[in-house]
Design a protein around this nucleic acid. Structure first.
Lengths: 219, 219
DNA sequence: CCTCAAGTAGTCAAACTTGACTAGATGGAG
DNA sequence: CTCCATCTAGTCAAGTTTGACTACTTGAGG
């Protein structure tokens, strides 16, 4: 039994991308992630992607196939295939990412991208647990950081807590909305026929590759 | 003129903590950050803190003084003092963190902790710019990711965008609230007399050191 | 006086991230 | 035909983060 590795958006993204293709090389993963806009909301940069592939291959979650020179220019490429253990890990990461509240939006975002790989009922169940987790966190944190001498003693430092609670509430509201949409029949989940295709076909162009400026540029 | 280094919560936190003391050793910084709850909402772990201190000393933002054995047990310690360049960098980081919208809440949180180091009018001005930046980002992103064939074509992937926009809106709302409170006279800013003391005195105990479980534990 | 838990201060290797870089193939302009 | 911009696919060194570990001191209890 392998020790579970810490949550990270890249592992989930890369594992999920390889899984959707069955077999994929790094550049393909890189393109999928760009198609999903993952470079906007996560640290999905080339180096991290190739590193994750190698690492997970070493850990037995993927198997690496050495493959002949590229069919479309550039250096030869290595293809990766997901293993049984990799699939287990993927599902574990996915469930954990949806359920737990750790205010890392990149992890949640990655998980939303794969949520349809679960069955509809489980997705709803996990999202409900998420809401409960957020509420529990909120309660613990407001109780703990409410000084007996009144909130004034915190001064402006209290604003930080306020920010976190505010955005936890926003996260909870969004989650409830998503639950409602899913229960209302939106999207196609596992075992419900023709799944939504979230990957680019061969030679298909990516309409979202460029154009959204880096958020950091807004100032 | 030194090239500006990428935004990171640790650099801002550590620089600001040293600055408040005038002169501080690593363990002191570590304690301040814990007092502010920074270990809850940022990667303020021992290794990162000591690393940041050494790094910034190497870059001339801090000067390291080798100091005699600890006065209170444990190994000898190194004290750090902020330089003129360090102060400049601190203010630059602070202004940048408040103004720009990069959806990294840890950076913003750190900045809020130091916002009273600016003058009230500048704080308000920067926060207004922040709101504008969020709105600009929101507009760019909604326009760019709205397919001509209607939003259905995105499938569940569209939920990711929805999440980001939702939390941007929450961030904007919180920022507006903060602006209102500051304009309403809350808190004590630079040049307004007795500042709020955000550091622990010698031997004073930290009421918030433990007790809030890790967010990841909620699931 | 001895012990041992708790506090003090910091180090370290392993893992991860970043951004720039390499290097071959294709295809269109001149 | 040649040049060069662009795409393909990936590597690499430098920097950063993590969590476990070390080593020393104090002080309370027996």
């Amino acid at each position: 039994m392998r020790k579970s590795v810490g949550m990270s958006a890249i592992r989930l993204l890369v594992l999920g991308a390889v899984r959707q293709h069955g077999r994929a090389h790094g550049y393909q993963v890189r393109n999928d992630l760009e198609y999903w806009g993952a470079h906007e909301w996560s640290n999905a940069k080339p180096g991290s992607i190739y590193h994750a592939l190698k690492q997970m291959a070493k850990q037995g979650l993927l198997v690496a196939h050495e493959v002949a020179p590229s069919t479309a220019g550039g250096p030869p490429r290595t293809e990766y295939e997901i293993t049984g253990q990799g699939t287990e890990e993927f599902l574990a990461l996915l469930r954990e990412a949806i359920t737990s509240y750790d205010q890392k939006m990149d992890v949640l975002s990655a998980a939303i991208g794969f949520i349809v790989d679960l069955e509809r009922s489980e997705a709803v169940e996990l999202l409900r647990r998420r809401v409960a987790a957020i509420e529990a966190w909120r309660m613990a944190v407001t109780e703990h950081y409410t000084p007996e001498d009144g909130p004034e003693v915190l001064g402006h430092i209290g604003e930080i807590m306020h920010l976190w609670v505010h955005s936890a509430d926003a996260g909870a509201a969004w989650t409830r909305g998503l639950i409602a949409r899913i229960e209302g029949g939106a999207y196609t989940f596992a075992g419900e026929g023709e799944p939504f295709v979230g990957v680019l076909g061969e030679g298909e162009e990516n309409p979202y590759a460029t154009g959204v400026p880096d958020p950091g540029d807004y100032h």
